[in-house]
């Protein structure tokens, strides 16, 4: 399972977590990632608007390009998880679910974490790395 990187956006579209696990995407500055997150938040909103099917209510879920494939999971509370993986990587759904579970455990149950703020939970990162990139 090769995951290239993970981004988490809060309700307002601000970037609260970003981490690269494998090579494949270019390294950008933190400012670039912030801008990217904001742009994506807007694009996601528009994609549900231009839907040709009435009352669809869903935003962008999968984005494909030549070199990577991005899956966006939006929770019921508006938090978005963006997973970047290789184009022919199967079972990204499983990965997304597991990452969400880790988020619900180690971020939400942490009394020192402020909601919607950047994630600085050591247990979350430790478990994430252990799951995505076990050595």
């Amino acid at each position: 399972m090769v995951i290239l990187s993970l981004l988490i956006l809060n309700k307002a579209g601000g970037l609260i977590f970003q981490r690269d696990f494998n090579e494949g995407l270019k390294k950008l500055s933190s400012n670039d990632y912030l801008v990217l997150a904001g742009t994506f938040h807007g694009v996601h909103a528009i994609t549900s608007r231009i839907s040709p099917v009435r009352n669809s209510g869903g935003g962008l879920e999968v984005l494909e390009s030549d070199r990577f494939r991005m899956q966006c999971f939006q929770t019921l509370t508006g938090t978005k998880f963006l997973i970047f993986a290789e184009p022919n990587q199967p079972n990204i759904d499983v990965v997304v679910k597991r990452v969400y579970e880790l988020y619900a455990d180690y971020v939400m149950k942490n009394p020192f974490y402020q909601i919607e703020m950047p994630i600085r939970c050591e247990a979350f990162e430790r478990n994430l790395v252990a799951y995505i990139k076990p050595k």
Binding site: G24, L25, K26, L28, D32, L36, T39, F40, V43, T47, S48, S51, P52, V53, S56, G57, G58, G59, L60, E61, V62, L63, E64, S65, D66, R67, F68, F84
Partner: peptide
């Protein structure tokens, strides 16, 4: 398209995207 270019280089291009309905 700009996002994809920025993330993976100027020769990559975005092919398609899918939402729940289209």
């Amino acid at each position: 398209r700009n996002m994809v270019r920025k993330l993976s280089g100027p020769d990559d291009s975005f092919i398609s995207y899918r939402t729940g309905s289209y």
